[in-house]
């Protein structure tokens, strides 16, 4: 697992954005729980990635979703925020001996606790940004809080499922 951007990540970008637009768009729990699964692309990128490149990738991913959602700029802003926070969270969560060269964002390699702490923090930041920018005022704040919490939970669960399904231990060791 190196730090360069491979064909794998391009495929992941297409798959996650397509999943977001075609499937997750119509999948809303109780009218409050949204799943913004396209950020999985940003979360699953290599650990020691170029920070500047990461920011631009965040912008591109968010912008792609924005076009389909007719929410010009909202998802892009939230994704750029996520991309900016990601290296910091990774720094905070550094294991005692630092990251190994073959470490990647993988639930089997890094363990449950690391993955959940990493993913949920960043998802929370992203979703808070999305919903606050959407209402664009502090008026609907009370309505946004349950939306944010349920959505973070929903996206988190979907992300864990994605990890368990498609990021097997075997592939991680390769």
């Amino acid at each position: 697992m190196n730090s360069s951007l491979g064909i794998r990540h391009i495929v992941q970008f297409v798959v996650f954005v397509a999943l977001q637009i075609l499937l997750m768009d119509s999948l809303v729990l109780f009218g409050t729980g949204f799943s913004f699964i396209y950020i999985a692309f940003l979360l699953f990128l290599p650990i020691n990635m170029n920070r500047v490149l990461l920011l631009f990738l965040g912008f591109i991913a968010g912008f792609a979703v924005d076009i389909f959602y007719d929410t010009m700029g909202i998802h892009a802003a939230a994704s750029v925020l996520l991309a900016y926070l990601r290296p910091m969270i990774l720094n905070l969560l550094t294991p005692r001996d630092g990251y190994d060269t073959n470490d990647s964002v993988n639930i089997h390699v890094m363990g449950w606790r690391w993955f959940l702490a990493y993913a949920l923090t960043l998802i929370l930041a992203h979703h808070t940004a999305v919903f606050l920018l959407e209402i664009f005022s502090l008026e609907g704040l009370s309505a946004a809080v349950p939306k944010i919490l349920l959505s973070v939970l929903f996206t988190g669960v979907v992300m864990v499922i994605l990890q368990l399904l498609f990021f097997s231990l075997k592939r991680a060791n390769r």
């Binding site: 924005d66 700029g73 892009a76 750029v80 900016y84």
Partner: peptide, 15 residues
């Protein structure tokens, strides 16, 4: 950080 600020400014402008 500067690119982050720049991109966010662009996003806010778009919004």
């Amino acid at each position: 950080f500067l690119i982050f600020v720049l991109l966010e400014a662009l996003c806010i402008f778009l919004i």
